[in-house]
Design a protein around this nucleic acid. Structure first.
Lengths: 139, 139
DNA sequence: CCTTAATAGCACAAGCTTCACCTTTTTAGT
DNA sequence: ACTAAAAAGGTGAAGCTTGTGCTATTAAGG
């Protein structure tokens, strides 16, 4: 199991947008180039981020993308949910999964604990925190 | 992102084998039927469990599969690694990933924390513990 | 008004996961 | 020895993820 490239690419793009926050809209080309992401593919990913309201777009010449909220108000959990829907690593964790073995299934409890742990880490990672950490690293 | 069915099916099969531990080898058909898993697919999964030494097989009539270690000595992390290799949700976490941005990448740290949390939960789930929990549930 | 830069959207190709099918090998019971 | 039960193994199909390519739409700047 690997995390989808959608989430990984999307997360990196969001951090990049947070870093360029004061520079006006960032074009897809710049974003893809800086983050080494296939441009056409990133285009599709970024549309989902826009549609869920995490970023806004400016069309036409000198257009591009920018964060739609303050960096403290967006976490990687938001990004994950925008690109993959609710964090749910196995179907049987959904409310109406209709799995007949749900009551007696002991592995389900393990998947549930993992999902919880993942959500906790993702929620603790705000764009603001990631930008701060990035500035610490590169100086 | 969903966990692979390989890991989910394989984990349930291992718990089932642990429950039948004193009954002699369990056939693929019984296993697939009890756990509601496509039989031919489970056959492939179970081969990987055998090849990594977690279970042993008995060929011929009245054959089947049985645990190869005591239930305390196998955790769901072992099952995961047998079926998917090392727990590594993103490539760049591997030692020689060769990602040029590794030093400055702040999302990588998040994926690393998630991987650690996942491994912790999986390692804490031994077959013995899961069997105990199952007996508590069904009575 | 026209050119050019840029987003928006659709359709298609390659590779991996999840299966199903068929044949071969092995072994218990008669 | 023969039959039936069961694992072992290889091959192929369907659907999803990960991309690529092409066209349409929008807006800035001369």
């Amino acid at each position: 199991m690997k995390f989808s490239t959608r989430v990984r690419y999307g997360s990196r793009a969001m951090v990049d947008l947070a870093l360029h926050r004061s520079d006006g809209p960032v074009s897809l080309q710049v974003l893809a180039d800086e983050q080494q992401i296939p441009e056409r593919y990133l285009a599709k990913i970024i549309q989902d981020l826009r549609r869920s309201g995490l970023i806004r777009s400016v069309r036409g010449a000198h257009g591009g993308y920018a964060l739609n909220r303050r960096p403290e108000e967006t976490t990687l959990l938001d990004v994950w949910e925008a690109l993959e829907g609710p964090l749910c690593p196995v179907e049987c964790l959904e409310a109406d999964s209709g799995c007949a073995m749900q009551a007696e299934c002991v592995t389900r409890d393990v998947w549930d604990r993992i999902a919880l742990a993942m959500a906790q880490v993702l929620k603790s990672a705000s764009l603001a925190g990631l930008v701060r950490r990035h500035r610490q690293k590169v100086g």
